[in-house]
């Protein structure tokens, strides 16, 4: 049995099935992303694991124990909330110490672990600050430290990076990954950002309408999507003559599917093309290697390998 096992998990809100018989096994130390559009049931799943929402039916087991029998306050899970949910009236150190206090950890030990964890997230010098006095990225780290300091069996991340700007988000992704690797905590990330899910996780559970459509490592899910939904959600796709082809797999060649370049957009490291062909509009992505590329209105031939 997996370290964290969700079995036939179902949650109804009125007549709406938010989560529909979901089963999933997460191994110890693994980083798993629940990925899907809003309303796919990923957040409800996370809240059922945390204990804030009760499942209508189904079971959750952690390390062989029935997790649903444990009160939310006793589950000992670390959670990073989308809004961070820092205690605004407490300093950073007090925020991080709160969970240890609840566990009755002795003061000396508490102080040591708080300092250690703040060091881990790179906030060693910010202990006496209040959340208000910190940037979004720093608040995010405090939230992470607060969740990690109690040495949770599982770390739950609820869209943790969605409130950060694009550049900071990328930095935090790298850092989050390093921290998770170094402490080795089993982690579940809820996100709607496929890039984030692919960058961070060992395995991705792509969810739609309360169900998991595919549960696989990122590369596998991207290269061999199990369903059309997974294919379209994990990046751009073209449907040409009944097969799906990723835009970056198509190249301009001497022969192949003929078409006329409708639009060409420069995006720094690559070019984005829309080509009008007899089988419809085809999106093509070409790396910017410095070569001259076909311009708008030119006739091109498209070729791709078959996999």
């Amino acid at each position: 049995m997996a370290f964290l096992a969700l079995e036939g998990l179902t949650r109804k809100f009125g007549t709406h099935l938010a989560v529909d018989g979901l089963s999933l096994g997460v191994e110890k130390g693994e980083f798993v992303a629940l990925l899907g559009p809003s309303g796919c049931g990923k957040t409800t799943t996370l809240q059922m694991i945390a204990g804030f929402v009760e499942p209508t039916s189904g079971a959750i087991a952690l390390d062989g124990r029935d997790l649903l029998a444990v009160k939310p306050a006793k589950r000992g899970l670390g959670i990073v909330f989308q809004s961070y949910a820092l205690f605004p009236h407490m300093t950073v150190a007090e925020n991080v110490a709160f969970g240890l206090e609840m566990q009755g950890v002795a003061t000396a030990e508490r102080t040591r672990r708080v300092a250690e964890t703040l060091e881990l997230v790179g906030l060693g010098t910010f202990a006496a600050r209040y959340p208000r006095q910190m940037s979004g990225g720093q608040q995010q780290r405090v939230a992470l430290a607060r969740a990690l300091v109690i040495r949770p069996q599982i770390l739950l991340l609820d869209e943790p990076l969605s409130n950060l700007d694009a550049k900071l988000r990328e930095e935090m992704q790298i850092e989050l990954r390093q921290i998770q690797r170094s402490v080795g905590t089993t982690t579940i990330l809820v996100t709607h950002d496929q890039g984030e899910a692919m960058a961070l996780s060992d395995r991705i559970a792509v969810m739609n309408h309360g169900k998991v459509e595919q549960f696989a490592p990122p590369h596998e899910a991207y290269e061999r999507p199990a369903t059309p939904f997974v294919a379209s959600f994990l990046g751009k796709t073209n449907l040409v003559g009944g097969t799906t082809v990723r835009p970056e797999k198509i190249s301009f060649a001497a022969s192949g599917l003929a078409g006329r370049v409708k639009t060409r957009i420069f995006q720094g490291n690559h070019w984005l093309y829309q080509v009008d062909t007899p089988s419809g509009l085809v999106t093509v992505i070409r790396q910017n290697s410095g070569e001259t590329m076909p311009g708008e209105g030119e006739t091109v031939h498209l070729a791709w390998g078959t996999t």
Partner: peptide, 18 residues
């Protein structure tokens, strides 16, 4: 108040009175 803050405290082991 951010309602998540109460949830955060509960997740860290705080009872209703705390």
């Amino acid at each position: 108040l951010d309602p998540q803050i109460e949830n955060a405290a509960v997740a860290l082991g705080a009872g209703p009175f705390t």
